[in-house]
Design a protein around this nucleic acid. Structure first.
Lengths: 336, 336
DNA sequence: ACCGGTTTCGCAACCGGTTGCGGTTGATAA
DNA sequence: TTATCAACCGCAACCGGTTGCGAAACCGGT
């Protein structure tokens, strides 16, 4: 039984044609009830499983959704994926997950394999290194729906689902101000990224609202935990160190926390900390961190729902792309 | 250009047959150099990309490896996946990642879609809920190589790649003893799991070696962070509380740490902590945790290498299954 | 002119399903 | 008796490549 059994096998056993078996299996009205029964019975007995590859080839569609993520190593993307899978499976589709690992080549490659595998739609979060977006244009030209989330290309016309960074940062910084902090620092990622810009915007909004000016010395950035740790050290050891820090991600938060611990500062007495962090990351610290939850699950769900409306829309009748902002939830814990 | 272009398109444009084009593209010696040049040139110009689905159907193989994991939400599996991807891509294959989410139905389902998609091999870590393993037997009967890792079924004859739990736990507990601890507790997962049994074994080995007896009250277990947190509370508040705890995973560690913090105990002064934990999890705490690193990356690599030797072996000529133990690395930090 | 051997290419079947269309059968109506 | 029609099923093409085999065209040698 090393070979999987096919429709032809069933047909031969029953003295029928392939077409009849195929139709019987899917309750086509042309087939008599007895024939259907016989076919289904033997199919059941032999554990017949249709070959998706053949179906995909014939129909030019695969019931598969391609997912491109930079990585799955931290909290955010896995939770997004959970949201995606919920909707994908609801529709009876399968998910094909590809990691770019922040590499442009692998990103292009991944898109190629998705197309070569006839995915019916693509969800994508782009790599940090990507600056040429023609592989995505390619997808759009082929009329394959694509929805970007979180890390989106700026120059592509497509649906986007984003965390509301401006609002989230504004909320977090405002909360720090509300608890009496005056010198609030922020740690951002790569300054070119849209998310960094937006978060800075929210930061400025909150400060300006209470008449504070943005000071350059309170803005640090870093690409890795170690980067951030070093930057935070400098930040804490300058004159007039901050009494509150807003971290932009789980990674920056880790670097910041390490530096704070190393400097023997107390949280929240000496310095308050809040930032964009996922569960269960934020509850592991001492004290548990107040956070702006990015709601990865909701982002995944929303992105996938948008994708399916595109898939189900008549081809050619494309609505204009939309941008969805998912507002984050602020959770106050011991660190502020 | 909404339709992707095929071999037939190229053939028509050049007045050739499909077969000639196909052969030209793969440098078949039967084709003249000029024809090859012409074909390749126009293929390049039109951005021709072969349709993997068609190739897969024809060859009955897909150059895809299926990966079944319970989840991708924590540190261990993502790092395993990194190792897997390294080897998979080295071989020019693609990885199809499916999550069971600890659900038996979804596990069976995932195996089905892998088979239906003609994967050439499967890497699997089974769900906690799985007790019937016939879906895996099915795979083996079909002569499709499968390698289990980390969470393995006991009653299936197949290659396995495991963390050396006995050795790892032994090392960790021994280290606690070496630093002068006398009452050492351990927190395990579900008692039925092989890993729990093995880790208990290592725990006992280390204790017995220095003439200590295993006491039931020092063995706790839990399925979730909250479970563990509660159990640790009880553990710490009984008479003769432990002065060292060995945690069996990132999850149990989180519960334990929360309970320790809540009880205002100092680490490592009052209680030392060590356990199986992944980077960067263990460095986030205060103090950074000593850990037994499970080496997910190595496990992934090893499992995939074994899988490819099976794939490349002549079918039928199956070697007997092997069990590989990956020894963990002990990293001493501030918590012990 | 004829033959054997290359070189170069096309025909057609095939992978495993799907589907338009046409054919056969039997029953019913005219 | 014959036309009509529904019920039921098979033929064959198709999706996009791959490949065994045969054939045409050309070569130099006799």
């Amino acid at each position: 039984m090393s070979q999987s059994i096919t429709i032809k096998d069933i047909a031969k056993l029953l003295g029928l044609s392939k077409s009849t078996v195929s139709r019987a299996l899917k309750d086509h009205p042309d087939i008599s009830p007895e024939t259907k029964r016989a076919v289904k019975e033997i199919a059941e007995k032999l554990h017949y499983k249709p070959n998706h590859v053949a179906i995909s080839l014939r129909h030019r569609k695969s019931r598969m959704i391609g997912l491109l993520v930079p990585n799955i190593s931290y909290f955010f993307f896995p939770s997004v994926i959970e949201g995606i899978e919920e909707i994908v499976h609801e529709h009876g589709y399968q998910l094909m997950i590809l990691q770019s690992n922040e590499s442009y080549e692998r990103e292009v490659n991944s898109i190629d394999t998705m197309l070569a595998n006839n995915v019916e739609g693509i969800l994508a979060s782009v790599s940090r290194k990507t600056e040429d977006f023609s592989h995505f244009k390619n997808v759009i030209d082929r009329d394959i729906p694509i929805v970007f989330f979180d890390r989106v290309p700026e120059e592509i016309k497509a649906d986007m689902v984003l965390v509301d960074d401006i609002r989230g940062t504004y909320d977090g910084v405002k909360h720090l101000l509300d608890t009496g902090r005056k010198q609030i620092a922020i740690c951002i990622g790569h300054p070119n990224l849209l998310i960094s810009k937006n978060r800075l915007k929210g930061y400025k909004m909150a400060l300006n609202e209470v008449g504070l000016e943005v000071e350059e010395k309170y803005i640090i950035s870093g690409q890795s935990i170690d980067d951030v740790e070093r930057a935070t050290h400098q930040l804490l050891n300058q004159e007039n160190p901050p009494d509150g820090i807003f971290a932009i991600s789980d990674l920056t938060m880790t670097g910041i926390m390490r530096a704070i611990y190393a400097n023997r500062l107390r949280i929240p007495e000496d310095i308050a900390v809040i930032g964009f962090c996922e569960e269960p990351f934020s509850t592991m610290y001492n004290p548990p961190l107040s956070t702006i939850q990015p709601m990865g699950f909701e982002i995944g769900k929303m992105a996938t729902e948008v994708l399916f409306t595109r898939i189900q829309a008549e081809h050619g009748f494309m609505m204009t792309p939309e941008i969805h902002n998912i507002t984050s939830k602020m959770v106050i814990r011991g660190s502020t």
